[in-house]
Design a binder for these strands. Structure first.
Length: 602
RNA sequence: GCGCCUGUAGCUCAGUUGGAUAGAGCAGCGGCCUUCUAAGCCGCCGGUCGGUGGUUCGAGUCCACCCAGGCGUGCCA
């Protein structure tokens, strides 16, 4: 058998006789053998408190009774019963040989597993509006969604990545209105700007024009309506924009042509941004193609009693079915769709198309309730969907200066951010490598900048609202992607200098029975399980943690004079070199899962 | 008002589903470059886990109430 998770296999081997001893004493084994939290408690520990009642014995005595069984295992070098825990020390010479061979050859060492084998999963993420360029918040969504998809694939799942682009609606018409009324026929090509930025500029121009109109009409008057009410009421601009939306829905050729042109610009810009971020999709849905879906579902639901008619004729869902109060409309009184209608239809269409076991929506936590309601309705419509729908809810990204507010112009543009991070990385690179040519410098700086961004966006648990610190994100010290990249580059450098001088030499594995090497091996042993857990929990922060822990342990190893590879005796050198190769491979695996380029030199 | 989320070191965050003396990074202080890359390493300092009760061998973790912050509570998306 091929061990994909060596630690799990070692634990299984060692735990077998312990479990047998527990059974012989008349109890079911229920407490796992696991690495202890305390550093002075050996390599693996078994808490025995749980068995105290069954055995009618003190935990300390149980631990002592189990000690003999543990001591007989070849991989165990020492046993100690302390405070109700059974602590085991491993035979690191034996472990080292197995671990290095495994880490150099097994896909499991790179975080691949079969934990979710055969499971069909659809992941929807990004879902941008085509009226403005993407910002830092979209970056978190894009990177989070893409990495979760990657992790699920690594765990053996059959993953489909989808993006539902919100390319129609009143907000799209606002940019179109501004372009038509305030533009001079500019194009991205003529101006040399990305199309999404050009469209976004007109969205800003719309807002300015509307604010100016509102101020002109209502300044100083205390019976002023709210801005939304004004827009949806007598505002001349509002009326024109709404007329545009109606014309779009009536498929007016001129409006459709303008819409197609501007959306094309925006989508081309998004494609560039995705490409640079290394984010991709198997399928891109557009709301202009899905917005009429779901009406038939509502009709059927009305007949089946899932929905009912409100007094004014709207089709509504009684939220008390979900333990909530009030009603959720799924068709307006005039028979038109709401956003939820489309969501219902799209979900059902995907279920028919993909037959998924799970569909994950990567959407911010401000929509928690929306998804609670959506999933509740979908499950009522088709009980087969029970348990198959999940919302990967994530918190906002804040800045050291506070929250991002589009009205206050404090949003961080995604493209600008990547440019800035690259430029900052380039400055450091140019200092360290004065002779490097421009293209290579740019390539490395891009990899470093994106590494900083991605790692920083992934290192927090999804639900955490965190503060993005651009400077800290590309620091080579601390818990960053750049730090992990550096460890990989150092490993590469050592191996280049070694130039296979250890080829054919039998490694002296006992040389790895030293503090720094053991710390590296412990980090390596824990890595695959951590990655599998990251997939199961949909928590990429576990991946960044596991990769960082390995990088840190490895940094302590290659920095210690007693662990030097190049100056070591042949047998010792061969063992250390193999450990470096193994750690490097695993680090590369971790970085790859995050979509981070591992640089050979930096 | 109601619902959900959050509150852990000066700052930013972890805490493996109830296990040993609560961790990491940053910042601060002190060391280490004629170097297997200083884009690094080593050490020190730093906590009544928001509060009060409860559950049990054992609570940052589970329960109740309270305090503070965020988000939501559309026939918007």
């Amino acid at each position: 058998m091929t061990p994909t998770d060596l630690q799990a296999q070692l634990i299984a081997e060692i735990a077998a006789p312990l479990d047998a001893a527990v059974r012989a004493a008349g109890a079911e084994p229920e407490v796992p053998l696991a690495p202890p939290t305390r550093e002075d408690a050996g390599d693996l520990a078994l808490p025995c408190h749980r068995y105290a009642r069954v055995f009618r014995k003190a935990p300390q005595a149980i631990a002592q009774d189990l000690a003999a069984a543990a001591d007989a295992v070849p991989l165990v070098a020492g046993v100690e019963a302390a405070g109700g825990f059974l602590n085991l020390r491993l035979d690191w010479t034996a472990v080292a040989e197995r671990l290095v061979n495994w880490a150099l050859t097994d896909a499991g060492a790179l975080g691949h597993s079969t934990a979710l084998a055969g499971r069909k999963v659809v992941v929807e993420y990004s879902s941008p509006n085509t009226n403005k360029p993407q910002h830092l918040g979209h970056c978190r969504n894009n990177i989070l969604g893409h990495t979760v998809a990657t992790l699920l694939e690594a765990a053996g799942a059959d993953v489909t990545r989808v993006n539902l682009v919100n390319d129609r609606g009143i907000h799209i018409c606002k940019s179109m209105w501004a372009y038509e009324h305030l533009g001079q026929g500019e194009t991205p090509e003529a101006l040399g700007v990305k199309g999404d930025h050009l469209v976004g500029d007109y969205y800003v121009k719309f807002n300015n024009a509307f604010e100016a109109e509102y101020a002109e009409v209502w300044a100083g008057k205390d019976d002023a309506p709210g801005k939304d009410a004004w827009f949806n009421g007598d505002s001349p601009i509002g009326q024109q924009v709404r007329a545009m939306l109606r014309a779009w829905e009536a498929e007016d050729p001129a409006v459709r042509a303008l819409w197609a042109t501007m959306n094309g610009w925006c989508e081309a810009g998004f494609a560039q941004t995705y490409d640079r971020m290394g984010v991709r999709f198997d399928h891109i849905d557009k709301e202009s193609q899905t917005y009429l879906l779901g009406k038939d579902l509502v009709e059927r639901g009305l007949a089946d009693g899932v929905f009912h008619r409100a007094d004014n004729g709207a089709a509504v869902f009684a939220l008390e079915k979900l333990g909530l109060e009030g009603e959720k409309a799924v068709l307006r009184a005039d028979g038109t769709s709401v956003y939820t209608t489309q969501d219902l239809g799209t979900a059902m269409q995907r279920y028919q198309r993909y037959g998924f076991d799970e569909m994950i929506y990567v959407v911010g936590n401000e929509q928690d309730r929306h998804f609670q309601v959506l999933f509740g309705i979908l499950t009522e419509l088709d009980p087969a969907l029970q348990g198959k729908l999940s919302h990967l809810s994530y918190g906002m990204v804040e800045l050291p200066s506070g929250k991002m507010k589009s009205r206050e112009g404090t949003v961080v543009d995604a493209d600008d951010l990547m440019d800035e991070l690259q430029a900052a990385a380039r400055e450091v690179g140019a200092q360290n490598w004065p002779d490097l040519d421009d293209a290579e410098l740019a390539r490395r700086a891009e990899a470093v900048g994106l590494s900083g961004l991605k790692f920083f966006l992934l290192k927090f648990a999804p639900k955490t609202t965190f503060t993005f610190d651009p400077e800290a994100s590309i620091k080579p010290e601390g818990e960053t992607g750049v730090y992990c990249q550096y460890a990989y580059a150092r490993a590469t450098s050592i191996l280049e200098k070694l130039a296979d001088a250890d080829a054919g030499v039998t490694p002296d594995w006992s040389a790895l029975d030293q503090e720094q090497a053991k710390a590296v091996m412990k980090a390596m042993l824990g890595f695959p399980g951590t990655v599998a857990q990251a997939a199961i929990d949909k928590k990429p922060s576990l991946l960044t943690k596991g990769t960082f822990d390995l990088a840190r342990a490895f940094a302590a190893f290659y920095n210690h004079p007693d662990c030097n590879v190049l100056k070591a005796e042949p047998g010792v050198q061969a063992a250390r070199a193999q450990l470096v190769r193994a750690a490097r491979r695993m680090l590369g695996g971790g970085l790859a899962l995050m979509g981070i380029t591992a640089l050979e030199s930096m």
